[in-house]
Simulated scan of single mutants.
Amino acid sequence: MYENQLKPRHKVKRGAKFNYTSLLDKTPPLSEYKINFVLNPEEKYPYPLKAWFEEGNVQRRLGNMFSMDSLGLPITEEFSTVDEEMVQKFRNTISYKDGRYHVQLPWYEDKVKSVPSYYNAALRILERVVKDLEKKGLYDQYVDVFRQQEDEGIIEEITVTPEDFQKYIWIPHRPVLKLTDQTTVFICSYKGANATSLNEAAYPGVNLMGDMLELLIRFRANKYVLLADIRKAFLMIRLELEKDCNRFCFFLKKGDNLHCYRYSTILFGFNASSFILNYVLKYHAEKFPADEYSQVLRSTFMLTIW
């Protein structure tokens, strides 16, 4: 499915324009249930401050944060042979060049070949996102987020004719509106009937989070606490393979035209991203002497929120 896409990135044409309305007219409708799955996901846990803070609608993965595993009370056995093989295979793909770490994404090869392109869903969900944000006067601000990412080389515009949409995997996306700004969420868990989602096809990795119980004790036992925010952490880790980039594609409306883009980095919403980021940080720490500074990275408890 992807062999014909393995082309050097500098040869990819950019700037193709397809009429947005005309393409939508040719796109089959999508059920309201599937649209709501992306735009109005059900909350997995109650958030008592929701009435006061809009960002309370965002999934913060608190269930995992307070799970038995994160509290230092594992409920599973040691890493399986499959985990060891997959982690080692991923480790062997890590490279450092041009000031960035590059990786190959860990896939279940039998599953990823069966993931549909989902271009129909991506187009119909984009249609709803555009309508909702234009009513609120926020669509230009939404596009600006992607324009900045393009300037930073995080995403790149590609030419894909409608006839070739099915050769790529398109990820639906939606905004998350906060009190002061907005961010973008990509729904890699989207799946059609009797189909495989992109997240199901990816190896999610093993739990590399620091022991939360140990972290809480450190808060009580030490005088100082170090907190840090890694700016656009996921977007700093680049994809090595062309075929991985072609599985991270998305549509964007600009004016009256539809534009095609793809990510050159891992992204938030992809279930292996947390594992990849944690592993790369610890991999980076291993390159330095085992002093108190590198130990901070090795024992970090990382919580990803939006």
Rank of each mutant, 00 (worst) to 15 (best):
S67I: 14
F250E: 01
M236H: 01
N4Q: 03
D151A: 13
Q104L: 04
R128Q: 09
D110C: 02
N64R: 08
K111C: 11
L297I: 09
K282Q: 11
N57Q: 13
Q5M: 11
S197L: 12
P48V: 10
F146W: 10
K136Q: 15
E214L: 09
Q141A: 15
T81W: 13
N278M: 07
F268E: 12
M236N: 05
T183I: 14
N120W: 10
E134L: 05
I75E: 08
G63N: 06
P29M: 11
R262I: 13
V225Q: 06
K135V: 14
G99A: 02
S273Q: 00
R298Y: 14
K13M: 13
L133A: 06
E292W: 10
G205H: 05
V58P: 03
D181I: 07
H173V: 07
E156M: 10
A272K: 00
N278V: 07
D181S: 07
K113G: 09
H173M: 12
R100Y: 15
E78D: 12
A221T: 15
L49S: 03
Y2T: 07
Y101Q: 06
I276R: 01
S274I: 13
T265H: 09
A290F: 15
Y119S: 01
N19M: 05
N278H: 04
L177Y: 03
N120G: 09
N64E: 03
K287I: 11
M209A: 13
D25L: 08
N207T: 11
V129Q: 12
H102W: 15
S70Y: 04
S274N: 05
T76N: 04
I125W: 08
K113L: 15
A228C: 10
F275H: 06
L226C: 08
V112E: 12
L216E: 02
A272Y: 07
L198P: 02
K254L: 13
K50I: 11
E55C: 13
K191R: 14
G210D: 07
C245F: 07
L213V: 06
E156W: 07
T27Y: 04
V160I: 15
E200Q: 02
F268V: 08
M65K: 00
K17V: 13
F186T: 08
L303K: 02
G192A: 01
Y283D: 04
L227P: 01
L267I: 14
K136E: 13
V145H: 00
K26E: 15
L138A: 08
V143C: 14
M302R: 01
S117H: 11
F251A: 00
D110I: 09
E156R: 06
R238V: 08
Q104E: 12
L23D: 01
T300P: 03
K243D: 15
S22E: 05
E214N: 12
G56H: 03
D132P: 05
F275T: 04
E214Y: 11
K243H: 02
E78T: 14
L239T: 01
N36D: 12
Q141L: 08
Y119Q: 01
R124L: 05
N207F: 10
H173A: 06
H102F: 15
C188A: 13
L71H: 04
F250N: 00
V176I: 14
L62C: 06
Y263Q: 11
